[in-house]
Design a binder for these strands. Structure first.
Length: 177
DNA sequence: GGCACGATGTGA
DNA sequence: CACATCGTGCCG
């Protein structure tokens, strides 16, 4: 099949997660369900970086679940949380550098569990590659939104210094005065 | 608005 | 047993 011209490829994802994560804000997630193609701008992401990061699943080392994080950038890491919600992540960096970006928000759907439910993303996406999948990929529309940086959400268990790393990136909207 | 709580399945 | 969450019910 013909791949879309604007699809983002490996050179984008095979960089450190702290470079890729903010660059994903404003990019467009494209998903094909049945024959319908939908597009959503990415509005919030979070970086998880390496075995030393206590909040990163790779902190537990290489396991059945974390295996895909040790692959090269562009692979899709999906896992189930609280028995109910699928979390969508993009692997970044080079092979054997376990990193990933959690997609926390897209235009119209704030919340990592809400967006996967809306887009019907589940465990069957585990291990697919954004650079080659025929149902999920990322496009660049040359939007460069302002970005707000804060600490990661829902990882208090990780403790210092990981709990306070400024690794959450979200689109910055104009403030009311 | 904010806080407490429980749903619910899986990996280590 | 904890978990990168979310919806509901209650408060007042």
């Amino acid at each position: 099949m013909i791949l879309p011209l604007k699809r983002i490829h490996e050179s984008f994802f095979c960089r450190d997660v702290l470079e890729v994560a903010p660059d994903l804000i404003g990019k467009v997630l494209v998903i094909k369900n049945d024959k319908t193609i939908s597009e959503f701008m990415i509005t919030e992401v979070e970086a998880y970086r390496g075995e030393e990061d206590k909040a990163c699943h790779a902190n537990k080392g290489r396991t059945g679940r974390t295996e895909i994080m040790y692959h090269s950038g562009g692979h899709i890491y999906v896992y189930l949380i609280y028995g109910m919600y699928w979390m969508l992540n993009f692997v970044t960096g080079n092979k054997d550098e376990p990193q990933a970006v959690l997609i926390r928000g897209i235009e119209g759907f704030d919340g990592p569990g809400k967006l996967t439910k809306q887009l019907k993303i589940d465990g069957s996406f585990y291990g697919e590659n954004l650079c080659y999948s025929d149902r999920l990929w990322i496009e660049d529309r040359k939007q460069k939104p302002d970005i707000e940086i804060s600490k990661r959400i829902g990882i208090d268990y990780a403790g210092d210094p990981w709990v306070s790393k400024p690794w959450n990136f979200r689109i910055s909207y104009p403030k009311n005065c």
